[in-house]
Deep mutational scan, measured.
Amino acid sequence: VTLFVALYDYEAITEDDLSFHKGEKFQILNSSEGDWWEARSLTTGETGYIPSNYVAPVD
Rank of each mutant, 00 (worst) to 15 (best):
A12Y: 02
L7Y: 04
A56W: 09
Y8V: 07
F26R: 00
E38L: 15
D9E: 07
N30D: 14
G45V: 01
T2D: 13
E11T: 13
L18Y: 04
T14L: 10
W36Q: 07
E46Y: 09
G48N: 01
W37H: 04
T2G: 12
V1L: 13
G23M: 03
T43W: 11
G34Y: 10
L18W: 04
Y8P: 00
E15H: 11
F4Y: 15
L18D: 00
S41M: 06
L18Q: 03
A6R: 00
S52P: 08
A6W: 01
E38I: 15
G48R: 02
T47Q: 10
L42W: 06
D35K: 10
T44A: 03
F20A: 02
A6M: 01
L18E: 00
D16R: 15
K25F: 15
L29F: 07
D59C: 13
S19G: 07
K25R: 13
S41V: 05
E38C: 13
I13F: 09
L18G: 00
N53H: 12
D59P: 12
T14K: 14
P51V: 02
Y54A: 13
T2H: 12
V58H: 07
E38Y: 15
D59E: 11
S31W: 12
E11I: 13
S19Q: 04
D9F: 04
T44W: 03
Q27F: 13
D59F: 13
S19V: 02
S52G: 07
E15D: 15
V58L: 13
L29P: 04
V58E: 10
T47K: 09
P57S: 07
V5H: 05
A39Y: 01
E15Y: 09
G48Y: 02
E33I: 11
A39E: 00
D16Q: 14
A39W: 01
L29Q: 05
Y49A: 05
A56I: 12
V5C: 07
K22A: 11
I28E: 01
E24N: 05
D9T: 06
G48K: 02
A56F: 08
V58N: 06
L7A: 03
L29I: 11
S52F: 07
V55W: 01
Y10H: 06
A12I: 01
T43C: 12
T44V: 01
V55G: 01
S32P: 10
I50M: 02
D16W: 15
S41K: 14
I50L: 07
S52W: 08
E33T: 14
P57E: 08
Y8I: 06
